[in-house]
Simulated scan of single mutants.
Amino acid sequence: MERELPVLKQQCDVVVLLSHLGYFMDERIAADYDIDVILGAHTHHRLDPAIEIEGTLIAQTGKLGTDLGKITLQIDQRQVTSKEGTLQSIDAAAESSLATEAVLERLQQSADASFREGVAVLDRPLDISWTEPSTFASFLVEHLRQWCNTEISMMHSGIILASLREGAVTKGDLHRICPHPINPCIVEVKGSNIKTAIERSFTSKMVHLPLKGYGFRGVKLGIMVFAGLNVEVVETTEGEYDVLSILKEGSPLIEDKWYTIAVPDMLTFGNLYPEIVQSTSKRYMMPELIRDVLLWALMKNTES
């Protein structure tokens, strides 16, 4: 902002900021910078009408696509003289427009056709468990490691919502069991921080956490699973977990050594795993989603 805004102001008449920082950060930006409009998101505020702070109009349309936002700017002599923002229910807009209904129907038909497309044929089922080791979780985390070409990978088993039976698998099946808009990510983390993150993951609170956000669309996080690491864990009589050992190629992790790990990007956000979030080396693999890695893995194994 400090570097780019003065340059932009010399090149244009109106400055609109697309923000996914949340309403409270948008308030700070509006107070500190000369911006005409902030189109915000993340905190799911529904601002109707939009709010003006220090000459900056802040607009947010809630969540889940329930509303359309409309911004009206009055410009005179290349200066914005007035501004306002309102919302309109998406249901009301769709019902009042035959053209919109036709577009939605066409898109739905296209999606349905794509979902019916076959991608693989399994000769045996892939079973998932959120509380115990399972073939499906092991399968995906290993192929996440291979796809990212890292020495280690780790993910929560809850990223897979259901098992796959033997037989034909379609794109619709993959979307149903892995609906998350989550990208693979490669991070560098010290051995000591990996150990802390693993111990944090094996608590009943984390395993059964009904996470909402960070792209996660599952029921609960589930246990952490690994490739490139041998993690020995036992469940206690109180329903908690004890991490007995963490070994890489038969040896404990070196605390001060940096390791390259493939993870779902959700582990690099918020306060789930500060040990991973604080890494200064993160490479987000885009536009591929974890679902694309699963598709690649299934096709690769079907071909072989």
Rank of each mutant, 00 (worst) to 15 (best):
E238V: 03
E232M: 09
N230A: 07
V231E: 07
L221W: 10
V219I: 12
G218N: 08
R217V: 01
V231S: 05
V231D: 05
E235C: 06
V225E: 13
K220S: 06
P210C: 11
A227G: 07
A227E: 02
K212G: 04
V234P: 00
F226M: 04
I223A: 10
N230T: 11
G215M: 00
V219R: 14
A227H: 03
L229H: 03
E238W: 09
Y214K: 09
G228S: 07
P210N: 11
L211F: 13
L229W: 06
M224T: 08
L221N: 07
F216I: 03
K212L: 10
Y214S: 07
K212T: 13
G218H: 04
G239A: 07
T236Q: 02
L229V: 02
G239N: 09
L229N: 01
V231I: 06
N230P: 00
T236V: 02
N230L: 00
G239S: 10
M224D: 08
L211P: 09
V231R: 05
N230Q: 10
E232N: 14
F216L: 04
A227Y: 03
V234K: 11
E232A: 11
M224V: 01
K220M: 06
R217G: 00
V234T: 15
T236P: 00
G222N: 09
G239R: 12
G218M: 04
V225T: 14
E232G: 04
V219W: 12
G239K: 12
K212F: 02
V219S: 13
G213V: 02
V233Q: 05
L211E: 05
A227S: 15
P210H: 14
E232K: 15
T236F: 01
E232P: 01
G239C: 09
G239Q: 10
G213Y: 03
L229K: 01
K220V: 12
K212N: 09
G213R: 07
G228V: 02
I223Q: 06
P210A: 08
L221T: 05
G222C: 09
T237W: 10
V231G: 04
R217Q: 14
K212E: 13
G213P: 07
G239L: 13
Y214M: 11
L211H: 13
K212D: 10
G222P: 09
T237L: 14
Y214V: 08
E238S: 15
A227M: 01
G213D: 02
G218I: 07
T237G: 02
P210G: 09
G213H: 06
N230K: 12
G239E: 08
L211W: 14
V231W: 11
T236W: 01
K220E: 08
M224A: 13
N230I: 00
L211N: 07
V234I: 14
E232S: 12
F226Q: 02
E232C: 05
E235G: 09
K220A: 05
K212S: 12
E238N: 11
G213F: 06
A227V: 03
V225Y: 06
G222K: 12
F216E: 00
P210W: 15
